[in-house]
Design a protein around this nucleic acid. Sequence first.
DNA 1: CGCAACTGCTAAGTTTTGCAAGCAAATTTA
DNA 2: TAAATTTGCTTGCAAAACTTAGCAGTTGCG
Lengths: 112, 112
Amino acid sequence: MENYGGYFRALRESKQLTLREVEKVTDVSNAYLSQLESGKIKQPSPLTLHKLATFYGVSYEILMEKVGYPMPKKQEREAKTEVNAAHRIGEITEEEEVEILNYLKFIRSRKK
Amino acid sequence: MENYGGYFRALRESKQLTLREVEKVTDVSNAYLSQLESGKIKQPSPLTLHKLATFYGVSYEILMEKVGYPMPKKQEREAKTEVNAAHRIGEITEEEEVEILNYLKFIRSRKK
DNA sequence: CGCAACTGCTAAGTTTTGCAAGCAAATTTA
DNA sequence: TAAATTTGCTTGCAAAACTTAGCAGTTGCG
């Protein structure tokens, strides 16, 4: 992904969190998060990506690939029937991903 | 592994290669290789590790673990390699799922 | 209104990766 | 033996991650 800054911003805002709230939990400074989300960081370290992946509940490996680190081949998808709701959304593009996150932010903001 | 410098040196010497021979193929400078093998480098970048892993014919993932990057375990890895929505947008409720599916339908219809 | 806390952001500093240049010792070649 | 090449290594530097400190605008509350 060329500009994943917006993706990180969308992830955070979809959960209605501030930079400092993310900082508290992940130990990544709000200053750095701001730079990351505005596209000023080329390649955050694997450790930083791991913290954010864990906190946001997204895949560490996908984040690694997104920022351009070489990662071993991903196997073809398995047919998994049960699991959580998000599995049933199906395939989405990276573009749709950000749109959905922004939409989630909108949905969730109405409920407060 | 605390001192993986010796490991890299052993890999190279077992193949009877000079620093400059490795440099030619991997595009990692002999200066840096020297520092790496003498334990002066804390954490070479994933890209550098990937080049060396490929050239020496060892596992990239094991190298990553060796230098201390977080890596998913094989079992986790297989379970998570499917590229599904949850890994990219985080957890959502069933209610949100329906809204997202409708929204996806909307944005996809808009695009043609 | 007034002010205190909160928000995102920038500037400056530290640390580390990785490279280019070049040095001294060893090896090769003439 | 003498010169040339090769070897591993060190130094100095640029680039980039990441932090601390602090600033200006906004929000909440008396």
